[in-house]
Design a protein around this nucleic acid. Structure first.
Lengths: 141, 141
DNA sequence: CCCACATACATGCATATGCATCTATCTTGC
DNA sequence: GCAAGATAGATGCATATGCATGTATGTGGG
């Protein structure tokens, strides 16, 4: 089955739009000397979670990170003192990843750049209605 | 300036939707033993171009690839015989990247998987009108 | 109880990416 | 015609990613 041109254009548009916006946001991050954008998602999931802690596979499910990438990302976050690994007694294979105070502070500091950057590069280009419409369409994929 | 929730959701939705669809398409590519998806864009731009050739910086502008990544991607394509570098006489710093017959054949073969994959993972989930709407919204970013 | 299989996470190795910088060639102003 | 700067592209080095597989622990059937 061949895709119609509308479909192909939507897909290309999706990849390119993400590319463009991401590049701008990453530029803002570098200008603010912040760590990689990907760190934010993990810290945010931990802040949201009950007790500030999650199992690695739960973080993976929420962020779509591959297991081996997440394993090493947690290493980096732990090395920077932003999270801490704790043993999970109910299952010897498992562990908790717990956000530290430094991790909470870093997430907050990142948001100081991230929030305005999202507003500048996404919010300013769409009306509220358009943003809602976009979200609804993307959710279908 | 802080982004409203509609804006943030649109941005998160954009990243996640691209992630999900890309993962599915890449799965299809691997199942068909095809090279990385990123090769397609370069080959496609070359096929489109007058004479099947472009300057590296022109490819970069069309694909949003960083200069150093593109330089090495062209190396890989050349090593596989899919493109050929040719000197650009009008400017000693420049070069042509020319698609080969093998390159054209590979692009066509990739499309045999890519097209149906786009249809399955994007087209099947959106009506024509929705796809057009999505394209229009993404173009604003 | 034990064997086969599943699940959680880590890791060695090859490849890809980002960053900074390099070389070579143009262009401009004087 | 030349020095100063811009542009095209390549590359060394550190880091990140993908893939396959490893280790440890858990579960379920006989």
């Amino acid at each position: 089955m061949r895709p119609g041109p509308e479909t192909t254009e939507a897909w290309i548009g999706l990849m390119r739009a993400r590319e463009r916006v991401l590049a701008r946001i990453e530029t803002d991050f570098k200008a603010a000397s912040l760590p990689p954008l990907g760190w934010y998602d993990v810290l945010w999931e931990l802040v949201q979670a009950e007790g500030g802690r999650l199992r690695p596979f739960e973080i993976g499910a929420r962020t779509l990170l591959a297991q081996y990438n997440l394993s090493r990302l947690i290493d980096r976050l732990a090395k920077e003192g932003l999270v801490r690994r704790e043993s999970f007694d109910a299952d010897g294979r498992g562990q908790w990843v717990v956000i530290t105070e430094a991790g909470r502070a870093m997430r907050a500091r990142m948001w100081l750049t991230y929030g305005p950057s999202i507003e500048a590069h996404v919010g300013a280009r769409l009306s509220e209605a358009e943003a809602r419409q976009l979200t609804a369409l993307l959710a279908k994929l």
